[in-house]
Computed example of a mutant assay.
Amino acid sequence: MLHKQQPALFGNPKIGMLKTATISTLLMLGYSQQAAAHVEYYDLNQGAQISDLTAAGKTASTSQYGANPTVSGLSGLNTTSDRALNNTALWNAGNQVYTGVGTFSNAAANTTSQTYTGNQFYNSNTVSVNDVTDWGWGGGTWGTASHTSGTGTGLLEDTHKVDFFNFRVTQDSTVTITWNVDDGAGDYIDNGFSLYKGLASYQAHDAATDPLNPTSGLSHKIQDPLDGSAPNNPGIADAQGIASDYRNTLTNTSAYLGQFNALGNWGDGNAAGNWSNLQFITSEHSALANTNGTGTSTTATDTLETLTIQLAAGNYTIAAAGALGSAFGNAGTYNLSNLHGVLTYNSVPAAAAVPVPGSVWLFGSAIVGLLGMRRRQGQ
């Protein structure tokens, strides 16, 4: 569903082209506005989108991660884990609920670098999705500063406006991620993504019915005891050992768009009371190479974001969307919600350090000794 443009953006011919092209594309392809989605991961290891775990899967997940801690005086929490499963033997309908959203391609199984039995991982994947907003990631760059993003004004950003991808590496690896967003008609939109350590719970989201998740619509603000003002007063760590950054829901006067933070730690929960935190590692966003001032380009390389990073073995989350309306001075959002996004992922096991043979050290010692003798003889 396309929303009305912000008044400040009228009169720009590029914007008219973007809107016209996008509308015609949506009609031609038969796109419809997808329902706001909770955290449903595009799993880069499995090459499938997982919406939740079954009861058996949650039991297995709790065994894998351990139970979340209980919090004195806080009701509604569920100590059971609802995070992604690592063991490939459990990647089936008995433990996971699959969805048909997203197209995966180029998945290549890496069978030469396993370190854990039964935990083969994929080292290459491309995911194509058609539910991307032009502002979701941009709104999350403001932190707890009030801003206007999408169709609302408030703090942080609505998790429903961001696409989530997860992956796991079984040993230290070099990981390369790329992300780009377009309207399907030749216009590319400025975008960004963040990389986090850890996993959020499936079906976690911003909801007024969940007091742990502040959002616009709450009649009053509830201070979340899970959050902390890191680093001096860190929040309560989840089973992954990750704590959430401070969200001032006690004294602020602004509404919340949500709780997605593109530049820091954050956490959320689901209706069942499962909760989890993500630890911010880095983000990738750069201003457009062109200077048309619209946040769009007809050249894909202008908006392509790329990150290459060394990661230790573990579970990771990518949050990605459009970057319009961000804290970095980008153009305002066009409120587009069904844009096309393509994320690529590739991991290569880090090369092990090659030990230096003992004979080399002995040879080096001999050379040093000979040089010392020559210096003494020359005196």
Rank of each mutant, 00 (worst) to 15 (best):
W142F: 15
T253A: 03
Y246V: 01
V162K: 01
R168H: 12
T151Y: 07
A331Y: 07
L2R: 13
T99D: 12
D190R: 07
T296P: 03
L18G: 03
T298D: 06
S146N: 14
K161I: 01
F363L: 15
L307E: 11
V354A: 14
G57C: 07
S75R: 00
K197D: 08
L307G: 07
L263I: 13
T111A: 12
S216W: 01
N92Q: 12
H285W: 10
T209D: 09
T22L: 04
D190K: 06
G341E: 03
Q310D: 10
F167T: 04
G228N: 00
T126H: 05
A243D: 05
P7C: 10
Q49M: 08
V101Y: 06
G150Y: 07
Y256R: 05
W361Y: 15
I309N: 02
V132C: 12
G228F: 00
A287D: 13
I222V: 02
T25K: 10
A287R: 11
V97K: 15
T308Y: 07
F165I: 15
T151M: 13
L2P: 06
A55I: 13
L77P: 09
A243V: 05
S283P: 02
A37W: 03
T25V: 04
G329E: 12
S75A: 09
T301G: 13
V368Y: 10
H205C: 01
G269M: 02
R376I: 15
L9F: 09
V39Q: 11
F260G: 01
L90S: 07
A230V: 02
Q377F: 09
N86T: 11
Q379E: 10
L288N: 11
S128M: 09
A204I: 01
G94N: 14
H205T: 11
W142Q: 04
S229W: 09
T59M: 10
V348G: 01
V127T: 11
D183G: 13
G341F: 06
F260I: 00
Y188R: 04
Y116L: 12
A331Q: 11
T54K: 09
T306D: 09
R168F: 12
L263R: 15
V175T: 11
G140W: 11
L257D: 04
V101R: 14
F121N: 12
G341I: 05
L26M: 10
Q46N: 05
T176N: 11
G11E: 06
V39Y: 08
G269R: 05
D183M: 08
N277L: 02
D134K: 05
T88L: 03
A37R: 08
T178I: 06
A255N: 12
L199S: 06
L218K: 05
A108I: 12
I50L: 13
R375C: 04
G73M: 02
A327P: 04
G228K: 00
Y98M: 14
S124W: 01
A84N: 00
S326Q: 04
Y316A: 01
G341N: 12
Y31G: 13
G136M: 05
T291H: 14
N338H: 03
M373E: 02
T54S: 10
L27H: 09
A313C: 11
G136K: 04
L53H: 14
G47R: 03
L288R: 09
G76F: 00
H220Y: 08
S32C: 10
G102T: 07
S219W: 03
A320H: 08
L27Y: 03
S286P: 00
I189R: 09
T249Y: 00
H147M: 03
I318R: 02
N346H: 08
G241A: 02
L362I: 10
T62W: 14
A84M: 06
I50Y: 05
G192C: 07
